[in-house]
Amino acid sequence: MSTEDQNDPTRPPKAWFDMGGDLAGAVVPEEHDYALWEKRVDALVMLSQKKGFFTVDGLRRALEDMGPDAFERLSYYERWVAALRRNLVEAGVLTPEELATRMEEIRARGATYGDVSAGATDG
């Protein structure tokens, strides 16, 4: 898919996540050790799949639908947690109301709640 094709109004545009062959800069050899919250997002995605609420395809579709801005603006697991949330709502496991209420409660526990949460094993 060349740039010319992308500008052709008679053809549908290539999807943003379908990156093969796009122009891009040098590969920056970055990596980081994953934080606990990132690993927990990953764990919750894997467990949700094992329990049959969605497949990796549903996760990918939600990530794709977040669009290219989210890809540039958010980190990998920031996008994953949003895709996880969406798939769990679609599967009827969680409601938006439950999530919103709980997130409000968590914020009310204070900015340092993360310290407590990181150490606790009971959730």
Partner: peptide, 12 residues
């Protein structure tokens, strides 16, 4: 070039 979740890359 359908919409939706597709696993066939456009470049192929």
């Amino acid at each position: 070039m359908p919409p939706g979740h597709i696993r066939t890359p456009a470049y192929l």
